[in-house]
Computed example of a mutant assay.
Amino acid sequence: MVIRNSTMQNRKTRRRRLTDREIDTMVAIIFRSCILPVLLLLCFSTRAFSQQPRQAQVPCFFIFGDSLVDNGNNNRILTLSRANYRPYGIDFPLGTTGRFTNGQTYVDALARLLGFPTFIPPYARTRGPALLRGVNYASGASGIRDETGDNLGGHMSMNQQVENLGDTVLQMRRYFRGDNGTLNSYLGRCIFYSGMGSNDYLNNYFMPNFYTTSSDFTPKAYAASLLKDYAAQLTQMYNYGARKVIVSAVGPIGCIPYQLARYNGNSSRCNEKINSAILIFNSGLKRLVNTVNNGRVLPGAKFVYLDAYTSSIDLYQNAAASGFDVIDRGCCGVGRNNGQITCLPFQQPCQDRTKYLFWDAFHPTETANIQFARTSFSTRSYTYPISIQQLASL
């Protein structure tokens, strides 16, 4: 579905559409003159921006999700789901930014692999020509359902994040001379990442003292309801111009330090009741990807299913081979498994973060994020039906 501008259509004299080369040249000029000098001043001396790739493989990268990929959108929201304090970001070149880990998130590492010279900025503080390279809409505690995460305070649900994409597209029009066809062509070459669903289980379905969904739905019915809503949200992203879309499966939440600390007092056994419910959702999500890719529902779209569940299970079972010594407790936190409370302000984390799979009760370390990004980018070990690198080249 193409976004139309009736005023432009009614004009007798229509402007010539820009070619892909002209678009890239225009964006490059804007980026160099308006954005790059400032970024270079901020980043020149940091290790993260050494050996910069020559050119990004796609013109822009848009990110939707929760705390696994949030990079600061929750910083000014009244919520318990915030990470804009030390020791969060202790290994990140720009320090504490609001990322829920010690360094880079999965999408940070993926942006680097895609060739972007800088990290994709948060939507909360990005406007103007910077939007042309993409933004991160992710918000800690958010979910597919609007009420998900309310137990932690404010957040931007998936519906709100998609609305923000719509606002972004409106702002981007001015840089394409009002030519919506050319803008849609540009957006069609970009990568869109969406990682949703974790909080719909963690901070909704399996929190019966706060939500009624576990009594209102069976696990199968709940997954079906989530997928119906998610399909509508992904369709709206398509309507705004998204064509190359990565959709991430929900990971094995039953194995995170938070659940290990709560599950019948057993600090090493995963909660398979939670994992079983998640597998129902993931199976449906993969079927949704197949439905989209048959070309009849969303013509021209290509979806890639990112199997974050299997990748995590493989890490649990082969941790030593991947360089991890500790897989059942957070590097930073309080209580059993360092999983009962997340990192407290100025708490001293573990010394060697590279040996830990989890940074805190819920989130992977930078090392785990980078490993997963590298594997999923260039191989099909955890992507279906093609790798992310292949998706970028389409």
Rank of each mutant, 00 (worst) to 15 (best):
Ile280Glu: 14
Phe324Trp: 11
Arg353Val: 09
Tyr201Ile: 01
Ser6Thr: 09
Thr46Trp: 04
His363Tyr: 11
Arg189Asn: 14
Asp216Gly: 02
Phe100Gln: 03
Leu227Met: 00
Arg133Tyr: 09
Pro385Met: 06
Val135Lys: 05
Asp314Val: 08
Ala319Lys: 01
Ile370Phe: 03
Met158Ser: 05
Ile278Thr: 04
Asp360Pro: 08
Arg112Cys: 01
Leu113Cys: 00
Thr342Arg: 05
Val135Glu: 02
Asn151Tyr: 12
Asp150Glu: 08
Leu279Asn: 12
Tyr211Phe: 15
Val162Lys: 00
Thr310Leu: 07
Tyr193Pro: 00
Val58Cys: 12
Arg243Lys: 15
Ala48His: 15
Tyr382Met: 06
Gly195Gln: 10
Lys220Asn: 15
Arg16Glu: 11
Tyr175Asn: 09
Thr101Asp: 05
Leu113Tyr: 01
Leu306Asn: 13
Ser276Gln: 13
Cys343Asp: 13
Thr235Pro: 03
Leu165Phe: 12
Gly254Asp: 03
Ala392Gly: 05
Ala111Pro: 01
Gln51Phe: 12
Phe100Lys: 01
Val2Phe: 10
Lys228Phe: 09
Ser393Ile: 04
Leu39Gln: 10
Trp359Cys: 02
Arg14Asn: 08
Ala48Gly: 14
Gly284Leu: 01
Arg112His: 06
Tyr175Thr: 07
Asn84Met: 10
Gly115Lys: 06
Phe44Leu: 13
Phe377Trp: 03
Phe358Thr: 10
Asn75Asp: 15
Thr367Asn: 11
Gln233Tyr: 13
Glu366Arg: 05
Val334Gly: 08
Gly295Ala: 06
Phe176Lys: 01
Val69Ala: 04
Gly181Gln: 14
Arg133Ile: 07
Thr126Phe: 02
Val169Phe: 06
Arg177Thr: 08
Gly241Thr: 12
Asn151Pro: 04
Gly335Gln: 11
Gly65Glu: 02
Asp167Pro: 04
Gln317Ile: 03
Ile327Cys: 12
Leu114Ile: 06
Leu394His: 12
Ala48Cys: 15
Ala392Tyr: 00
Ser33His: 14
Asn71Thr: 13
Ile280Pro: 00
Asn275Pro: 04
Val162Thr: 07
Arg54Met: 09
Asn209Phe: 14
Tyr205Asn: 13
Cys255Glu: 03
Thr97Tyr: 09
Pro122Lys: 05
Tyr205Pro: 10
